[in-house]
């Protein structure tokens, strides 16, 4: 009954994942499926847009931990954008800002990849 949706779209060479609703232990596997799809397609430049995410638990945070290194090993990254303060605070409690880049706006995050050039 948990309400969660995930959508994948391409913006140039960057894959943008829109997350919507409640990301918990029940819904985290749906997000994992999207990351697996990205790895299958060798898409390593990822922006996660949190604009419509209302809630996240450690099960959701764990998904980003599980995939970020593979992305970076392949000259990509997982960057975050459009996060509500209440959601950001949970990432902050666990020290994520040391390891991940957070942007106010999706375009800024996408631009950051484009500055690196196409590899």
């Amino acid at each position: 009954m948990a309400d969660f949706n995930v959508n994948l779209r391409g913006v140039g060479s960057v894959s943008v994942i829109d997350v919507n609703g409640y990301l918990d232990a029940h819904t985290a596997p749906e997000l994992e499926n999207v990351f697996n799809k990205l790895l299958d397609g060798k898409n390593y430049r990822v922006v996660v847009n949190f604009n419509d995410l209302k809630y996240i638990s450690s099960a959701g945070l764990g998904v980003f931990m599980a995939y970020v290194e593979t992305m970076r090993e392949n000259k990509g990254d997982i960057k975050f954008s459009n996060m509500k303060e209440s959601v950001y605070n949970i990432f902050d409690l666990l020290g994520f800002p040391i390891l991940y880049e957070f942007y106010k706006d999706e375009n800024e995050a996408v631009q950051k990849f484009n500055e690196l050039g196409l590899s």
Partner: peptide, 14 residues
């Protein structure tokens, strides 16, 4: 969190 990253460990955060 830095150790977690290196070891790809994803549990125990709860």
């Amino acid at each position: 969190i830095v150790e977690y990253y290196k070891k790809k460990k994803i549990g125990g955060l709860g």
